[in-house]
Structure formats: C-alpha cells, structure tokens
C-alpha cells in the first residue's frame, strides 16, 4: 500500500479526538471521507500532513515512515477550504510558489506554470492578482499551486465547501480530470454526501474520531450511519407526495 496509517491516536485535554485510525490506500487513488463538523476530520488530515503531532501510531508513505519527519519534508500538501492565495503574488507566481522555494530553474518553472494554467483553464489570468479573479478561479489556482509540486499525497479539507452549487460541480469535474492527468493520490474530506460518493475511488465515514472504510460503494450506501438511506428515502417520499 502507498499510504499506511496504523493505530493513530490523538487527544486534547484527555478527550479523544481521533482514535484507532487505520488507513491503507493504493497509489493514484482517492479516498473520500464523509463526516460531520467536529468529527475529527481536520485533525486527522493535519496529523498526516505533519502539522499536528500524533500521540501514538505510525504513518508510512511508500514504505517510508514519515510521522517523525517535519511537515516541509514529507511531500504531502494540505489544501484548505479557503483558497489561501498569497495576496501579494499574481496568479502565475502563486502557482509557481512551490517550485520557486524548491529553487527550480526559471525556464522550467515558466514552462510548468504555463502548462498548469492551461490545465486549470485559466488562460489570460496569469498576470492578475488574487482579488481580481472569482472564488472558483481562486480555488483552481490553489489546486494548481498544490499539484504543480508533484506531491506524494494530497490532502483536501472540504476544498469546495465555500463555493456555490454550480461552481462546486465544475470544480468536482476539474478535480477528477486533474487527479487522472497528474496521477494524484489523495484523501478528500467532505461533509457532502453526494460529493463523497462522486470523488472517491474508496469511501470512508468518520464519526466521533473513528474512521470506517467501506469495501465498496454499496456497503457505504447500505450503512444507515452514513445517512445515504435516509437521504434516498427523503427524495422518494417527496416524489410520492408530488405525484
């Protein structure tokens, strides 16, 4: 397995936030994780990224133990719900940021950023500043900035949570395309049921700090805990009432 997380535990003031966390994920696959606010999703991602220390457990990436390595050397990029574009840099420089700090030669940076801008369908926006583009475009730039560094693992913490329904749908399509083009391995956290089903090769559900990974889509749908059955019932009932 490419990502192996074994028995991770995390508590704050003796209250367990994440317990018995185990993940096994193959290379170039996306695990989508559904969970309500405060269930421990963000803490889980931050522990894997190295931004929050773990109390116990092991994290391995491509067979190498990374839980004792600092965040900047793990090659794991964490994407926030907010785009967090650097306000003093243009779209082009925001995307180039990760390459610049790795001291990659200018002409290589230029070529890769231009290619990424095309992939993100942001042609003509490279010289604009973040405040001059829309919310969806900003989130695309944030995506490009993360993907261009070729991270071993991408962690997405409700990346489309602040977008409207239409933009969200476009971004979901874009992510699926980029994940395929750039062979991305990722953990995709969301509180949106539909998004969890659409985005993941595998699906998991998190509740009160415990993660449950389903062997296939139908077992996720048939588990009453996930809320899929209740949701389906709601739409069925609504349809029956209408006709």
């Amino acid at each position: 397995m490419f990502l192996e997380v074994h028995d991770i535990e995390k508590s704050y003031n003796k209250e367990a936030i994440v317990s018995e966390l185990n993940i096994n994920l193959e290379k170039h696959k996306t695990l989508s994780i559904l969970g309500r606010s405060g269930c421990g999703k963000t803490t889980m991602l931050k522990m894997i990224a190295g931004l929050t220390p773990i109390d116990q457990g092991v994290i391995k990436l491509d067979g190498v133990r990374v839980d004792e390595i600092e965040a900047s050397k793990r090659n794991i990029v964490y994407l926030y719900q907010e785009d967090l574009l650097f306000p003093h840099l243009s779209v082009f420089e925001n995307i180039a940021f990760g390459l610049r700090i790795k001291k990659i030669k200018d002409h290589i940076v230029d070529d890769r950023v231009i290619e990424m801008i095309e992939n993100l369908e942001l042609q003509g926006h490279g010289s604009k500043m973040p405040h001059q583009i829309s919310g969806g475009q900003r989130q695309r730039v944030a995506f490009g900035r993360a993907i261009i560094t070729n991270p071993a693992l991408l962690l997405l913490d409700e990346p489309f949570g602040s977008l409207d329904a239409g933009t969200r749908k476009n971004m979901q399509t874009l992510f699926l395309r980029l994940a395929k083009t750039f062979n991305i391995t990722s953990l995709f956290v969301t509180h949106d049921l539909k998004e969890a089903i659409l985005m993941g090769d595998e699906i998991a559900y998190m509740d009160k700090g415990k993660l449950k990974i389903y062997k296939d889509r139908s077992s996720f749908i048939n588990d009453p805990e996930t809320g899929v059955l209740a949701e389906t019932e709601f739409w069925k009932q609504l349809k029956t009432e209408q006709f």
């Binding site: 900047s72 610049r100 700090i101």
Partner: peptide
C-alpha cells in the same frame, strides 16, 4: 488565517525563513 498560511507554506516545502521572507513579511 495567518497560521493556516504558515502551515500551507510548510506543506509546500518551505521552512520558517522562507515563510517569513516570502509570505509573512510581504503580507
């Protein structure tokens, strides 16, 4: 929010000095 920027730079591969020089001081 600033803490999130710092964390983001760290996951993109930047150390403390890079964070100060390239992000915090300009911001």
């Amino acid at each position: 929010k600033i803490k999130s920027y710092e964390d983001l730079v760290a996951t993109l591969g930047g150390g403390s000095l890079t964070t100060f020089r390239k992000v915090l001081l300009p911001m």
